[in-house]
């Protein structure tokens, strides 16, 4: 088998465009990236088998038939992409409905750990919620007393 340069070019462009969109934060763009990437992947699968006539016995002789196996795989892949597109669209809509935009946000908890790491602290670095009153320092007690003093806030 020899490679078909037209296919190679189309695969490259579809994947490149797909990945570029995939790296965006807008879920709609991510979704379009997924669709383009999916098309590229399908075409990549198609290059695994030779081209030819339709794989229908009686219409095409077996020698001229295109390879049916990649086609069967791609067929289900196409339909699954449809299901995934629907799911991502619903996700985008839901995000827009709840947050007013459809952008993928950074994880808040991960951000917190990153700040800890920048300060070179352990996981308990922000652990102020200790339930042990033995650990209350004089400073804490003073602050508590101050906050309990009436009339400060007016």
């Amino acid at each position: 088998m020899t490679p078909n340069l037209t296919y190679v070019l189309v695969i490259g462009v579809l994947v490149a465009a797909g990945v570029t969109l995939l790296l965006e934060r807008s879920l709609t763009r991510v979704l379009m990236g997924v669709v383009l990437l999916g098309n590229g992947a399908n075409l990549l699968l198609l290059t695994g088998g030779r081209a030819g006539g339709a794989p229908i016995v009686g219409t095409t002789s077996q020698e001229e038939m295109s390879d049916p196996l990649p086609q069967a795989m791609i067929l289900t892949a196409i339909v699954i992409t449809l299901g995934m597109t629907a799911f991502l669209l619903a996700l985008a809509y839901r995000s827009w409905h709840l947050n007013g935009h459809d952008e993928v946000q950074d994880d808040v908890e991960d951000r917190r750990i990153m700040t800890l790491a920048e300060r070179d602290e352990g996981p308990d670095g922000e652990d102020t919620g200790d339930d042990d009153d033995d650990d209350m320092t004089a400073e804490d007690e003073r602050r508590l007393a101050a906050s309990a003093t009436p009339g400060r806030s007016g």
């Binding site: 490679p3 296919y7 190679v8 695969i11 994947v15 695994g48 390879d67 196996l69």
Partner: peptide
């Protein structure tokens, strides 16, 4: 840049895989 790089890798794979196939397809 990353997209183009990935696209190039995918195109390269398509080229090499299609061109180096020697086994008879299972189909």
């Amino acid at each position: 840049g990353l997209g183009v790089a990935v696209g190039a890798v995918a195109a390269g794979m398509a080229y090499v895989m299609a061109g180096t196939r020697q086994a008879v397809p299972i189909s």
